[in-house]
Design a protein around this nucleic acid. Structure first.
Length: 856
RNA sequence: GCCGGUGUGGCGGAAUGGCAGACGCGACCGACUCAAAAUCGGUUGUCCGUGAGGGCGUGUGGGUUCGAAUCCCACCACCGGCACCA
């Protein structure tokens, strides 16, 4: 048995191409000369702002980062070549739980862990050759940054957009903190997977629901520029329903109860009312009922509260509920509707109470059938919706309507949710659904018992967190129970030293244990007061960071409005789809708030958005626990940055997942060695006259110039790499068996390859550029324009079809006359043979590409 | 249940109304070499045929068109979002 000897294939095998030496050389020069710094105020070129979602410093970079920042780098480099002043910054989303958990595990300071990881990732980005502007680095955990989170919070508070309320909140029992709705996925904590429970707490919220309509409607502007999927997810998440609020008198209660309904047209069909058992309203209605009801209600409430969200939300559970022995009065007909408490009604949607119309709502019908409540049909879904309105006898009994009887929900168990003609509904009779909704809404408004209304699935954004490693909430709780802002001259309100603090999760913020830190004075009276012990959700940090890059060192304001006018909004944004309804919704919200405050002149932060796919392995997501990790620094060491970059860019469309098993770093390395070699084979000088070069090769070059910018704009990076491979193959062939290494077209083509390859393999491209006799940096060289005369082929292959099948091809001039082309096609030997005497009944000629004959 | 997306060789993918499978991976054959690696050249959708050539082929079925992977309709499969949201 022979032994396998490890060989440095990269250095030896590729015939002199040594990616690691090249990489070190150019990274050092970039570091010294800072060529990718964005142009300043004096720069008159048009501007482009390219941004990839900033990383969380969770250890070393991984393959997902390799992909994400490769794509933003490709776009940034392409725009530089096309004459733009490009801003491509990098920073770190450096507050958050993992730092804290790691610190708890090791008894260390989250700061140390965080900044050590940032240093490691910075080094990773440098050795990967990403063309960031390193002068604008920010870390959200720096007081210089989070000071402006506190500014934002106070601005929001001034405008009534930050407020406190007591409410049942999502509580992660593992992380021991509250979570925003967006951070609960399938009833589980987005971060750790623990089953989320409800807890009633007083917390800080941002009033994102005030912006629900704008967040929804403005998605239309992004159509075509954002992934369809993300727009869809945001629309679903906001979940606007249009209908009416209807006020019901309650017997024995002074105030009316309002319900929301998308089907106010069915108001005459309401036969009972249901309130959410965990709502204040249910508790109050039960409290004023009999002792027996109170007891039954209490038992039911306890049972309901024991359920997790997962249990409560699972569909096709049998309906449960209790009768509260209270009655509501239907405003349109005075009927008494029994009021029930049932957990299929949610406390925090609409008004926590519904009018139940069992005939026309499946849930209400299920409940009615379970508790033997009446069902009254008020929409004849069998009636035609077009033509004359059928005459309905107002005294007609349902039993008289044969058609309706056969589909009576009370017997079939299927609610009639479709459109139809109103019946048993007084003034609405005969109307269609849409007209009935309009009519009843008017009537309710006229009588003061209702009004048009909208409801949203979206809830206000809970931003308090009971954890240490985040932005302290800049508010003071005074002795008299007031809550006042920390005065501006005392900002930033810095986190205390973590040493000596118990960071372990215990359900309240660790800051509460920092006595010196917690005690402060009431800025109005000087009396002693307490700080707010909670920190902000880290999604607050990332909701506006793209603005901070515009002037990251500014100590006087969060961002410079003049720079915002120059650079913002972001022209090209890229990141994973996992942020579709978290970061991207919050950033849109905060941008609109900043617009309303007059700080920015745009309402959407990210003009175009791309979601890159994930890097997976063997069909499943990489994870430490599964042990199927492909490590970034190992791949980098094995193949070099350029091969890694080319392999990833070539692996497939940006949006698709890339299985590492299908990614060929060795293939990429081979290609790069071939490209590097042709640059060294060129023997002509830089001042040769290209026009004297081989025309066929020149056509290849100019097709490249014609095609590549468009392909980059469409983010078809894999196709651009394929085109470069074709070009390299064509040059190789020209050198070896055609025009020869001295031909000007060989130089022209090789220069084009170097200039475009810069997007994918910047180190190799610089090395090629140098070999071709130029000064650094190819990364800053403007791309050439295609020569139109070289784009028009002289001869093309025309396809000749008979009855839709290709039967022959002929070489013709690109400027061939259609009549002449048809003549040539008819005369073609293969066509004559294939026709076998059949007559051509029709000929379609699309010169110079197609002739299509039909024979029938 | 509602809404949306996707479906192409052994594999990743290309082609958005005009030669399906560009480019690459893998595989096979050859040149160079004592040999191997690297490099270079060739073959590679599938079936029939010695060959020339022909049949079939982009999830399935239909349609539009001289011509469909591409447009339309229905269905199937997979993936994703929302879901007792009134």
């Amino acid at each position: 048995m022979s032994q396998t000897v490890p060989v440095d294939t990269a250095a030896i095998a590729e015939g002199g191409y040594d990616p690691h030496a090249i990489q070190g050389k150019w990274q050092e020069r970039w570091e010294q000369e800072d060529p990718f710094r964005a142009g300043g105020d004096e720069d008159t070129r048009p501007r482009k702002y390219v941004l990839a979602m900033f990383p969380y410093p969770s250890g070393d970079l991984h393959m997902g980062h390799a992909e994400n920042y490769l794509y933003s780098d490709i776009v940034a480099r392409a725009w530089r070549h096309r004459g733009y002043n490009v801003l491509h910054p990098i920073g770190w989303d450096s507050f958050g739980l993992p730092a804290e958990n790691a610190a708890i595990k090791r008894g260390a300071d989250p700061r140390e862990w965080t900044y050590a990881n940032i240093a490691q990732q910075k080094e990773g980005f440098r050795s990967y050759g990403v063309s960031f502007d390193w002068n604008r680095v920010l870390h959200t955990s720096d007081p210089e940054y989070y000071r402006w989170n506190q500014w934002l919070f106070q601005k929001m508070h001034e405008r009534g957009l930050a407020y406190r309320k007591e409410s049942p909140v999502n509580w992660c029992p593992n992380d021991q903190t509250v979570l925003a709705n967006e951070q609960v996925v399938d009833g589980q904590c987005e971060r750790c997977g623990a089953v989320v429970v409800k807890k009633k707490l007083t917390q800080w919220y941002f009033r994102i629901t005030d912006y629900a309509d704008r967040l929804l409607d403005d998605l239309n502007q992004l159509e075509g520029s954002w992934p369809h999927k993300v727009l869809q997810m945001q629309r679903n998440w906001i979940g606007r329903s249009v209908g009416a609020d209807i006020d019901f008198e309650i017997e024995g209660r002074a105030e009316k109860v309002t319900v929301f309904s998308t089907r106010p047209d069915t108001l005459h069909g309401a036969t009972f009312m249901v309130v959410a058992p965990d709502s204040d309203l249910a508790a109050e209605l039960a409290a004023d009922s009999s002792a027996e009801v109170r007891e039954r209600f209490q038992d039911y409430l306890e049972a309901v509260q024991k359920q997790t969200d997962i249990e409560r939300q699972s569909t096709d559970r049998p309906k449960t509920g209790v009768f509260l022995d209270r009655f509501a009065i239907n405003p349109v007909n005075g009927e008494r509707l029994p009021i029930w408490a049932a957990d299929y009604v949610l406390a925090d949607y609409g008004h926590g109470a519904v009018m139940a119309v069992p005939a026309h709502d499946q849930r209400d019908l299920d409940f009615a059938r379970a508790f033997d409540l009446p069902v009254r049909v008020v929409v004849d879904t069998t009636a035609p919706l077009t033509g004359a309105i059928p005459v309905i006898d107002p005294d007609a009994n349902l039993e008289d309507l044969d058609t309706i009887e056969s589909i009576d929900p009370a017997t079939t168990g299927v609610a009639l949710v479709g459109d139809g003609r109103m019946i048993n509904s007084g003034s609405l009779d005969g109307l269609s659904k849409r007209n009935a909704i309009a009519r009843i809404t008017e009537e309710l408004a006229a009588s003061g018992t209702g009004r048009a209304s909208k409801s949203y699935r979206l809830r206000d954004w809970l931003i308090s967190r009971q954890r240490f490693w985040g932005t302290p909430i800049p508010m003071i709780h005074t002795a008299d129970g007031e809550i006042v802002p920390v005065p501006d001259d005392q900002l930033p309100l810095r986190l205390p030293d973590a040493h000596g603090l118990d960071l372990a999760p215990k359900g309240t913020s660790p800051l509460g244990g920092a006595d010196d830190w917690m005690s402060t004075v009431d800025p109005r009276t000087g009396e002693s007061a307490r700080r707010d012990p909670d920190t902000m959700d880290t999604f607050v940090d990332s909701s506006w960071y793209y603005m901070r890059f515009l002037a990251p060192q500014d100590a006087t304001q969060p961002f410079d409005p003049a720079q915002a006018l120059r650079w913002a909004p972001v022209d090209f944004y890229i990141g994973g789809v996992e942020h579709a309804i978290l970061h991207l919704l919050y950033a849109r919200f905060i941008t609109k708030v900043l617009f309303d405050m007059g700080y920015v002149d745009f309402t959407e932060p990210f003009t175009s958005l791309i979601n890159q796919g994930m890097v997976i392995l063997g069909g499943s997501k990489m994870s430490k626990s599964k042990g199927n990790l492909v490590l970034f620094h190992e791949e980098l060491a094995a193949h070099g940055a350029d091969a890694l970059r080319v392999a990833l860019a070539f692996a497939g469309p940006v949006e698709d997942d890339k299985d590492w098993a299908d990614v060929s770093t060795t293939g990429a390395q081979k290609f790069l060695a071939r490209a590097w070699r042709i640059a060294h084979d060129v023997t002509s000088d830089p001042d040769v006259v290209w026009a004297e070069g081989d025309t066929a090769l020149r056509r290849v070059t100019h097709r490249l110039w014609a095609e590549v910018p468009g392909l980059i704009e469409q983010t078809k990076f894999n196709v651009v790499v394929a085109r470069l491979m074709e070009a390299v193959n064509a040059i190789r062939k020209a050198i070896d068996t055609g025009a020869g290494p001295a031909d000007p077209a060989v130089r022209e083509a090789t220069e084009a390859v170097a200039m475009i390859l810069d997007l994918f393999a910047p180190h190799t491209a610089e090395e090629m550029w140098e070999a071709l006799g130029y000064d650094r940096f190819v990364g800053l060289v403007p791309w050439r324009q295609p020569d139109a005369t070289l784009l028009v082929e002289e001869n093309v292959t025309a396809v000749i079809q008979i009855d839709g099948k290709v039967r022959s091809t002929i070489e013709v001039s690109a400027r061939v006359d259609p009549a002449e082309l048809e003549r040539a096609a008819r005369a073609d030997e293969k066509i004559v043979r294939a026709l076998a005497g059949r007559e051509i009944t029709r000929a379609i000629v699309r010169a110079p590409k197609v002739v299509s004959f039909s024979t029938h």
